[in-house]
Structures are given as structure tokens and as C-alpha cells.
Design a binder for these strands. Structure first.
Lengths: 148, 148
DNA sequence: CGTTCATCAACAACGATTGCTAACAAGCAA
DNA sequence: TTGCTTGTTAGCAATCGTTGTTGATGAACG
């Protein structure tokens, strides 16, 4: 099974263990991330949060997402789509990015042959490998058959 | 040999062929790109240009870089290092990105096995594949041996 | 030469993100 | 419960990279 973001209860425990407080705002963010099937931007998470807690500021959402990313419970992606995306799927995987609508799709495939040749890495220590396939999803390809 | 950005003379011809005018500012940018061994940001190109033409605005640099990228004479990279990088190497290749200093290094290696499995692409049309290896270059690894 | 249109510099505006700070609330203990 | 301590929040300003706007300049082409 896929290693998703932890449950709200687990994240609550983790936050408390780090001496961080668990506020209603944070609980709402935990729940939204846990239920999310996509790669939401901070803005998108904020839009969801304010449906139940209308006073939550975007600032708070950023803070909590950054905390989660720093704890390794979330992966922050910068795919050149304008805003950073927060990926609740922790299993190493890759991404399809649509140049039309910006949609990001997971690709749960391992490419075991992809590594930096020893003759070329020149002291570079690789900590992660990201593969991004850019193109157009079916919907966008249909919408713009010829020119952009 | 590597397919680098065209010479200033060739770029001049290309601009004129497109009905774009070739100003001293643009010629300076052409020359700087052609001599560049790295992946300069717009800011870095601007810093170089103003050494010979102190009046050139950052706006003009962006405009020319965008024109070149639109013509396919330059590849614009967004690697999450803050600013966009402009890559004068046109041959398909991949990148090593140092999380410490942000340095971007080319990796002239082809990974023929990297493609989206037919069973998973679900209508997605891939137009380009980017592989980014993140980690630390030798200098940054030496500077920060343990914690960041 | 003169017309015309792209370009220039300067500044404002923009979107995404972060810094700042006073008011506030979570967690803990008594 | 009550109170204390400390981290958190909301709101706004500021920052960064980038682009829009504009009046003036200047190149290209006839």
C-alpha cells in the first residue's frame, strides 16, 4: 500500500512530541491533507480550511505546511507551476505535470537505472531524484488540438 | 559536441529574421550567454550586462531572455531555487541541483529506459522529461558535514 | 530623410511567500 | 477549576522574482 500522510491523530501526537501545540486550525489542516487525493497548493488548502474555520489566515496554513514538510510528513514540490505543491504521498514516486492546466499526477513507478554515473558526479552527493514528465493531459490535449 | 546556444552573429540574424531589432543591449546579452558556462538567472545576466552597459534595465534582460526561450534558443528552468535559470545548453540533458548553494550542474547522460508505462499514462502526452538530482556538491558537503 | 513601430528605462503592480507583532489559546501544574 | 508559560494566530507589511504600462527614444526600411 502507498505510504500516505499520517492520520490526524498521529500528526497530533507528533506535534505534541515536538513541543508544538495542536490548535483547531492545525487539526483541520491535518484532516484536509489526509483526505486529499491531489497535490494541493497552500492556497488550495486554505480554501478548504476556511470552509469550516473562516477566520484562518493563509499565513497559518503556510506555517503548518512548512512544519509538516520540515518533519518529513509532507513533501514540498516546486514544479514551476507558480505555487509550491504539497504532496501527501511519501513513498518515492514521480510526477506528470500538465503544461495546460497545471495538474500534477503521481506516477508510482521505480526507475532503478536512474543514477548519476560515478565518473560524472564529481563529489556530488545525491539525496533525492525527481523525474518530471511534462506534457498535456487528455483533457487539455482535447481542448487545444493544434496551437496553444 | 554539445549543442550550445548559437553565436551572437547567428542570434542577430535570427532576431532580424523574426522582425525583432538588434540593439547593443541585446548583442551584449547574446555574447554573455554564448560565453556562459553555467545556468545564469536573469539577475546574473543583468549583473554582467551592466558591467559594459550600465544603463540596461532588468526588464530588458527579461524581455530578451524570454524572446530567446520562446524561439527555442534557450531553455528556461525552474528548479525551485528561487529564480528561474536560463540554460544555454540545448541538447537534452539533466541536472544536479545543490540544496546548499543552489548551483546547477549539467548531466549529459541519456536514460533511455525512463518513460511513462503505457498502462499508466491515461491519455497523457509527454513532451519532455526532466530528471533532477538533488543533494549537496562537494564544497557544500565539506562546509556542513553534519547538520544543515 | 521620414515614417513607423519596436524598444528602452523607470516605475508600479502582481502573485507567492515570509517577517513582524500584539492578542490569544494550548498545555500543564496545582 | 484557575493561573502561568510559551507557542500560535490574524492581519498586515515587506520581500522576491517577474511582468505590465508608458512616454520617449531610436532603428529599420522604403
Amino acid at each position: 500500500m502507498v505510504d500516505d500522510v499520517k492520520s490526524p491523530a498521529e500528526l497530533t501526537d507528533l506535534f505534541r512530541a515536538q513541543g508544538l501545540k495542536v490548535t483547531p486550525q492545525r487539526q483541520a489542516i491535518f484532516r484536509i491533507l489526509h483526505e486529499s487525493e491531489v497535490h494541493p497548493s497552500a492556497e488550495a488548502v486554505h480554501a478548504e480550511v476556511t470552509r469550516e474555520l473562516p477566520m484562518v489566515s493563509l499565513r497559518t496554513v503556510y506555517q503548518t505546511l512548512n512544519d509538516l514538510a520540515a518533519m518529513g510528513e509532507l513533501v514540498q514540490l516546486d514544479l514551476g507551476t507558480g505555487a509550491a505543491r504539497f504532496d501527501p504521498t511519501l513513498t518515492p514516486h514521480h510526477h506528470l505535470v500538465c503544461d495546460g492546466c497545471g495538474r500534477v499526477t503521481d506516477l508510482e513507478v521505480d526507475f532503478p537505472d536512474v543514477s548519476v554515473p560515478a565518473t560524472l558526479h564529481r563529489g556530488f552527493t545525491v539525496s533525492s531524484t525527481q523525474i518530471v514528465f511534462r506534457g498535456r493531459c487528455d483533457a487539455c490535449a482535447a481542448a487545444v488540438p493544434v496551437h496553444p
